[in-house]
């Protein structure tokens, strides 16, 4: 199979999955108890106003008609209007998505860095204290609920030591221009180094929390794969010949150990997103996760539905991209 037809097949295969996702989400949310119209209008609205609103929102139509309207809307990029704010859901998601993306990317980088270096060093010094420490760290960090871990870090570094801000994304006053919504990038593009430092300080705790919790997977994979490669005759020979550690370890062993890690990145990204919900809530991080939690509190139907669809599509897209990259890296995947 050529690369192009592989990519095409992969995308076509994703379509039924997206469709099923849409069906499941639609019917799931229709059975929520709690009338969205009453939630918007409160208790004091007269009956005719309630009826009119119901009509406006299309809630008086038969369920199948509502369903097809919904499918049509989704495919035209219309995720409905938030009942709480009267704004298009897609607009609200656009406002908040960069925050989640920035948090996830940085958490990912932190997880990779910890995993890569600690994992490689542990493999180099197998069974020494550093290695045992790595193993204890992995077990513990993965048993820790991310919201609890975040709270503890917040108490230590924000409340007690006061090194880092408590929550939020930027200080009250900033001077850089927001263009992409990824503040790190925006600050760099505006050449505002003070602003960049501010942004990084706000980003530190949430991304470290999420990154550390995720790092244990990478740590373990790098360590085990590197151990495996280091035990190969070729590498042993290289070590015996007195080649520099940096060359042997990072130039050869880790590089090879990295390939299998790539295959789990897709799934990791999905679980990072889930972790982001709890992390964002802990740190008042204005991303999609805290948005979803807030909208569930207000039973804002269209917003909840839109957010979940958005999450679903995002994950499907990520997994397609990962698969394609895999196919590029390793041609065997295609067959």
């Amino acid at each position: 199979m050529s690369l192009r037809s592989y990519i095409l097949t992969r995308i076509i295969l994703a379509l039924p999955m997206i469709f099923i996702l849409l069906v499941v989400i639609f019917f799931l949310l229709r059975i929520i108890p709690g009338d969205p119209v009453l939630a918007i209008l409160g208790g004091k609205a007269p009956l005719e106003v309630i009826e009119q609103k119901r009509h406006e929102m299309g809630l008086d139509k038969p369920i199948m008609v509502q369903f097809f309207d919904y499918l049509k809307d989704v495919f035209t990029g219309n995720l409905g209007t938030s009942t709480l704010t009267n704004r298009p859901v897609i607009e609200e998601l656009k406002d908040r998505f960069p925050a989640t993306l920035e948090l996830t990317i940085f958490a990912f980088i932190i997880a990779l860095l910890i995993g890569l270096f600690w994992g490689a060093e542990s493999a180099w010094r197998k069974d020494e204290p550093l290695d045992i420490g790595a193993r204890v760290y992995s077990v513990l960090l993965y048993s820790v609920p991310v919201f609890w871990f975040g709270l503890i870090l917040q108490l230590i570094f924000a409340s007690y030591l006061r090194w880092l801000p408590v929550g939020g994304r930027i200080p009250a006053v900033t001077s850089f221009e927001v263009r992409t919504g990824l503040y790190v990038l925006d600050a760099i593009m505006s050449g505002d180094w003070k602003g960049l430092l501010d942004v990084l300080r706000y980003l530190a705790l949430p991304s470290i929390t999420l990154g550390m919790v995720t790092s244990s997977i990478f740590l373990r994979m790098v360590r085990n794969n590197t151990v495996l490669i280091l035990s190969k005759d070729l590498v042993k020979a290289a070590r015996a010949r007195g080649l520099k550690k940096r060359v042997v370890l990072y130039g050869h062993a880790v590089k090879n150990a990295f390939v299998p890690i790539f295959t789990i990145i897709g799934m990791q990204f999905a679980s990072l997103l889930a972790g982001a919900i709890l992390t964002e809530t802990t740190f008042s991080w204005p991303g999609i996760g805290s948005y979803l939690v807030m909208k569930i509190r207000y039973r804002d139907f269209p917003a909840i539905q839109g957010t979940i669809i958005f999450f679903g599509l995002f994950i499907v897209v990520i997994s397609i991209i990962i698969d394609i990259v895999n196919a590029l890296v390793d041609p065997r995947v295609r067959y």
Partner: peptide
């Protein structure tokens, strides 16, 4: 389709 979806988000939606 259910499997690829992050577990917690799915659970939150159903619990809600």
């Amino acid at each position: 389709a259910m499997y690829v979806f992050p577990g917690l988000i799915l659970a939150i939606a159903v619990a809600a």
